[in-house]
């Protein structure tokens, strides 16, 4: 034990040692990044091709195709996923089995395989009809857009169903009971009371999956859907500037993902209404733990 009796404790100063380790790590990082940047700078990349094509009409059409497919496939996935999640938690065993089977089937096979199956559906069903009525030619209907939408949207539904289900499970059982006690049916209680609260838990993984979907749409290039990867491919087959055009595609993916990430944080803020710290104007209350117990 040190003797502090004869020391004026008020005069002792807390030292701030120099963070050598942090400085060293920063230096290594700087060198590494500089090396990569330098490599790309001196590499055989004709950067003017990147700037020339970044905003060219065919590339922009491809970007648009990627955005449209992402939005449509996610919308379909969320709609299907929410229905499947509610079905999976239903009291009706037939609905539960149907939902479980759906998730098992569409989560169990690769997205690329499903895209190819939809696109080639005409091989087994040359015409599609509703019990013999309204017959249509399958090749006509199963355009690259429709095949990609079905393939991506349906399998997204299987993943989203699990996300929505975990969100619903995260809401306290008492919420359902309180909703029922004021005369709501189960379905109505789920839709107006449970799901809005589940959104808090659902939005972050859905945001994650949306970002995944932006990139998953590139699979649709194999069935001739014109999204960004396919359009840059069309260009570099003609001019052989492979890396330059792949960089163009990369830049556009980064732009889309960045915008989506910003949007996600706004959506999260919206659904966190009523949680977290009391808003301004509200008085801080002594029994925080009890109040937070609700959330």
């Amino acid at each position: 034990m040190q003797d502090l009796v004869n020391v004026d404790v008020r005069k002792l100063k807390i030292a701030r040692p120099i963070p050598y380790l942090q400085i060293a790590a920063s230096f290594v990082l700087f060198v590494f990044v500089a090396f990569i940047v330098h490599a790309f700078w001196v590499g055989a990349i004709e950067w003017h091709y990147v700037s020339d094509y970044l905003f060219s009409a065919p590339i922009l059409r491809g970007v648009w195709g990627t955005i449209v497919m992402t939005v449509c496939a996610m919308a379909m996935g969320i709609l299907l996923g929410t229905s499947i999640a509610v079905m999976r938690m239903s009291a009706n065993p037939a609905l539960r089995w149907a939902a479980t089977g759906y998730i098992w089937l569409f989560r169990g096979t690769p997205a690329l395989l499903q895209l190819l199956l939809w696109f080639n559906l005409a091989l087994i069903f040359p015409t599609i009809s509703l019990f013999g009525y309204f017959p249509v030619n399958t090749v006509r209907v199963m355009t690259p857009f429709v095949a990609a939408l079905l393939g991506l949207g349906i399998q997204q539904g299987a993943y989203t169903a699990e996300v929505v289900r975990s969100g619903i499970l995260s809401v306290d059982r008492g919420q359902m009971e309180a909703a029922q006690s004021i005369g709501m049916t189960k379905l109505r209680a789920v839709l107006t009371i449970v799901l809005p609260q589940a959104m808090r838990v659902i939005v972050p993984p859905i945001g994650n999956e949306t970002i995944g979907m932006v990139k998953l749409t590139s699979l649709a290039s194999v069935i001739q859907y014109s999204e960004v990867l396919r359009t840059v491919g069309d260009v570099y087959y003609a001019n052989s500037r492979v890396i330059e055009l792949l960089i163009v595609a990369g830049i556009w993916y980064m732009v889309i993902v960045t915008i989506l990430s910003i949007g996600q944080s706004y959506i999260e803020k919206y659904f966190s209404k009523g949680w977290g710290h009391p808003t301004q104007g509200a008085k801080a209350l002594p029994d925080g733990p009890t109040a937070m117990g609700m959330a």
Partner: peptide, 19 residues
């Protein structure tokens, strides 16, 4: 659900709708 409207319920853990 219609019958439940006649019976009010107050729970141990309040169960107010937080949103």
């Amino acid at each position: 659900a219609r019958q439940r409207q006649n019976v009010g319920m107050v729970f141990q853990r309040f169960n107010l709708f937080p949103h």
